[in-house]
Computed example of a mutant assay.
Amino acid sequence: MKTGECKYGAQCRFHHPIDRPAVALSTTKPSQQENVKLTLAGLPRREGAVIYVYYLKTGACKYGATCRFDHPPPGEVVAMAASQGKSDSTGGKA
């Protein structure tokens, strides 16, 4: 019930109350949820959090807006990698 959806639908053997919003069902603290910005794809941007590696490789995240990782746009990841590559090189040769 983290996402508010059940893949079994009407055939599910468990009770899923209809009147409860998905936000109330998540396990994260409400104060953290309020400060999260979402991307155009509906995935959370959590500045300073670990970037979700599976999302970077596949472009998919099954947790959606409740995911605890950062989901930067692909262009931003390329720019970050390029800037880290330039800052990591010392230029000194042996």
Rank of each mutant, 00 (worst) to 15 (best):
G59Q: 09
G91W: 11
T58M: 13
S83H: 10
K7P: 00
E47Y: 11
S83T: 14
L40Q: 10
N35P: 00
V50C: 06
K2R: 12
G9V: 01
S31N: 03
N35W: 00
E34I: 00
T66A: 02
V78C: 08
V36A: 03
L40C: 03
A49H: 14
C67D: 07
C6V: 00
L40M: 07
G4H: 01
T39N: 10
K57S: 11
N35K: 14
C67V: 03
E47F: 07
V78K: 15
G75Q: 15
R20G: 01
Y63I: 00
P21C: 05
V36S: 04
I18L: 10
Q32T: 00
M80K: 15
A94N: 06
A49M: 09
A82T: 06
M1F: 15
M1C: 12
V77Q: 11
R45K: 11
K86S: 10
T66V: 03
P44Y: 04
K7R: 02
T27A: 01
G64I: 04
A49D: 13
A24W: 04
M80N: 11
L40E: 14
R68Q: 04
M1T: 02
H71N: 05
F14G: 08
S89W: 14
P74W: 00
Q33L: 12
V77R: 12
R20S: 03
F69Q: 03
V53K: 14
G42H: 09
G59M: 10
A41S: 14
S87Y: 03
G91H: 09
Y54L: 05
H71I: 04
K93V: 10
V78D: 13
P44N: 06
S89P: 04
T58R: 12
T58H: 13
E5L: 01
K29D: 08
K86N: 09
R13K: 15
E47Q: 08
P17D: 11
F14N: 14
G91I: 06
P30T: 03
S31P: 02
V77L: 08
R20H: 15
G59K: 08
S31C: 00
T66D: 08
P30S: 02
T28E: 08
T90H: 14
P73H: 05
K57Y: 13
C6A: 02
C61R: 09
R68Y: 00
H71V: 03
G9R: 02
R68W: 00
A49K: 12
A10Y: 09
L56Q: 14
A60L: 15
Y63E: 07
H16M: 11
A60R: 14
K29R: 07
A10E: 15
P44K: 06
T3V: 01
P72G: 00
R68C: 02
K93G: 09
T3C: 04
T28K: 04
A94R: 11
D70S: 05
A79R: 13
V23G: 05
R13F: 06
A60G: 10
G9Y: 00
A22I: 07
S83Y: 09
S89N: 11
A41R: 13
K7L: 00
G91P: 15
A82W: 14
T58A: 04
P74I: 01
R13D: 12
Q33I: 03
P72Y: 01
